[in-house]
Design a binder for these strands. Structure first.
Lengths: 101, 101, 101, 101
DNA sequence: CCCGGCGTTAATGCAC
DNA sequence: GTGCATTAACGCCGGG
């Protein structure tokens, strides 16, 4: 097997376990489950926020605004912010190159 | 103008205003700005969560787990069990028809 | 099974075949294979074109041009062709209401 | 200027030209345009092929095949057999560790 | 030579 | 159900 993986590639201390049983269902399984559940929790929160945003657009449309144009404005504002950050990072880079950090 | 819009399509009460003054810069502008800022706030929170998720994957990789497989598992868990089996059986059927078994 | 599929959902004329054997390995399999091979052929051609494009970028870089900037130019030229004036005017209107001009 | 560029960074043979006149509008401009147009031509061809592929999927759906499954099959056929089995076994392992079998 | 970031492209979900 | 907007996956690229 080329790829390392959590279950089989580490040295096995326990010589008594059956072939390839490893940590299956054991500690690594618990860690894996923990990772998965943390991610799932965060994704649910993300989904909640997406729904909130969608609600705002729906409401805005209901009062006569055009959602597509609003999205475009938001994109513009984002771009402006990024441009400023880009300038900042270039500034930091130059300072770094000059040993001013 | 085909599309309704917040600024020009409503009945105008004030016959004295100069050309195109309407609500521009006034109440509708304030409402629009409020909408935009609420959305931007929520999108920032979403971005934060996305970053958190990315961190977890990074950490998981660092301890020997395979991110791609984890994503696949999470996808499975989201999917209705019946639908999943249906997809699998169709997949096997096609492979069988192609002599890929 | 909810989804229609080429092999099992059509009325079976041949009452002698085993349950669910259908066209597996037979005519539908041939049609499926044909579909797949046609798609694969086209995807190979696409890959060839992608490689050609990549070669041009490599050559351009070799003679002192900046690939990233060229890509940006090409994107701009594409966008120019797509621009819709109606959206443009509404966009300007909203920006005006926000004092973004 | 950090990045090389076709117009200003080369040694100037012609000492009489004004500051920064370089090849702008001259030979390098022609070469750049040629590069861009060659790329655009190839990208159009790519787009044509993409459309052809889309047509085949549409047709396949029209005769009862499932596009999603076909895509999965094509993906499989592209993938190295050994790598595919490796992925599958890791996937099964993770499911086993999670008690999803 | 590996890795993380980025740009492109495919897949999903949503609105009409 | 179809087209579109968002989101996720893939592959390339430059830097460490």
């Amino acid at each position: 097997m080329a790829k390392t993986n959590k279950f089989f590639d580490e040295d096995e201390e326990d010589g008594n376990m059956g072939h390839n049983s490893g940590d299956v269902g054991g500690i690594a399984g618990k860690r894996l489950l923990s990772i998965i559940e943390r991610i799932e929790r965060l994704e649910e929160e993300k989904k909640g926020l997406s729904d909130d945003i969608k609600d705002i657009y729906t409401e805005a449309k209901g009062t006569g605004f055009d959602a597509k144009t609003i999205k475009r404005i938001i994109k513009d504002r984002k771009k402006d912010k990024e441009k400023l950050e880009e300038e900042e990072s270039l500034y930091e880079l130059y300072k770094s190159a000059l040993g001013m950090l």
